[in-house]
């Protein structure tokens, strides 16, 4: 009975040998639909100091080949802490386009 159920419900998919554990496979859970604002960096002003990288709770910032920080839109939750810590104030907030479009549509209606 149990073995039948285990087969049907694919119980063995729950972890190797049924041990509750997980291994990081570089596969991110996207959190982009959490945010209403997103940070936009003005690269002309950026001094590559790394403060946004250090203060991001969601590890969204990484550096590109030129040494400039880039925000990973998949995981950024739009907390905008990076704006508050930037010493040269080169990051600004932009409302998510999806949201503004929705609002515009509602207005038209």
């Amino acid at each position: 009975m149990l073995s039948k159920l285990i087969k049907e419900k694919n119980v063995h998919s729950a972890g190797k040998k049924g041990i509750p554990h997980a291994v990081e496979k570089q596969k991110l859970i996207e959190r982009k639909n959490w945010r209403t604002w997103k940070p936009v960096i003005d690269y002309d002003k950026c001094i590559k100091c790394g403060m946004c990288w250090l203060h991001c709770p969601d590890s969204a910032y990484a550096f590109n080949k030129k040494g400039f920080p880039e925000c990973d839109g998949r995981v950024c939750k739009g907390c905008l802490l990076c704006i508050t810590v930037c010493p040269v104030r080169c990051i600004s907030a932009e409302q998510e386009r999806g949201l503004t479009e929705k609002k515009e549509k509602e207005k038209k209606k």
């Binding site: 996207e30 959190r31 945010r35 709770p57 969601d58 990973d72 995981v75 907390c79």
Partner: peptide
């Protein structure tokens, strides 16, 4: 530690 956690924004 990567992103994508359940923590609040700005946690």
């Amino acid at each position: 530690i990567t992103g994508g956690t359940f923590a609040c924004a700005g946690c």
